[in-house]
Design a binder for these strands. Structure first.
Length: 194
DNA sequence: TAGCAGATACCTT
DNA sequence: AAGGTATCTGCTA
């Protein structure tokens, strides 16, 4: 009842569902706003991650409209309606970063450095904020890459991994980002305006 | 053009 | 007050 989980809301619910070879999960608040979303090729990893994020709530194996929307985004499509996000347990700094992420057009990428310039911060700090994005893929942290336009890193269920990088590339390619070898073409670069 | 320090800025606990 | 970072830049060859 005490400790760092005290920030988390009591009325949150956790759902997971399978689609083709992957598992998708959401944590929603009492008004069906998004608290956390995540996906994985491993049901147990996803369950552990969501359980941890929710303060040990047990995920229910049941579909949810937000999961359907998440699968659309995963396949490179737009959501069919706006998603309301519960920002209550993220810092002001992260909210600023996530706001910029939401303005990156589909099919484009931007860099940690240009985000940091836009919000008056530093690139490494932006990196940590992006890395801990709880709303993936709705808030598109996969559209942020290093300044050399390589693929960079991507976390699945908490930690960066090589499979994560592959998923990141898949997501970008489905959206229409153009690769040449292991680098992204300059034509796919988008820069936020301060 | 690729690889590698060193530097920087700043968020988090 | 210290630790950590999903970075950047310029220097080398």
């Amino acid at each position: 009842m005490v400790g760092r989980e005290s920030m988390l809301q009591e009325n949150n619910q956790v759902f997971i569902a399978q689609h083709e070879d992957k598992w998708f999960g959401v944590i929603v608040d009492e008004k069906d706003r998004l608290v956390t979303s995540a996906f994985s090729d491993n049901q147990e990893k996803l369950t552990r991650h969501l359980s941890h994020m929710s303060g040990n709530a047990h995920p229910v194996e049941k579909d949810h409209w937000l999961i359907k929307e998440m699968i659309r985004v995963y396949n490179g499509k737009e959501t069919s309606r706006p998603i309301e996000i519960d920002f209550r347990n993220v810092s002001d700094f992260k909210r600023n970063v996530y706001q910029v992420l939401q303005s990156i057009p589909a099919g484009k990428v931007t860099t940690y450095g240009s985000i940091s310039k836009a919000i008056g911060s530093g690139p490494r700090a932006v990196g940590t904020a992006v890395a801990s994005n709880p709303y993936s893929p709705f808030i598109p942290c996969h559209r942020v890459v290093p300044a050399d336009m390589s693929i960079g890193n991507y976390s699945m269920n908490g930690k960066p991994s090589t499979e994560g990088c592959e998923v990141k590339r898949e997501l970008l390619e489905k959206e229409g980002v153009v690769f040449r070898g292991d680098k992204i073409e300059a034509s796919s670069l988008w820069k936020p305006r301060a």
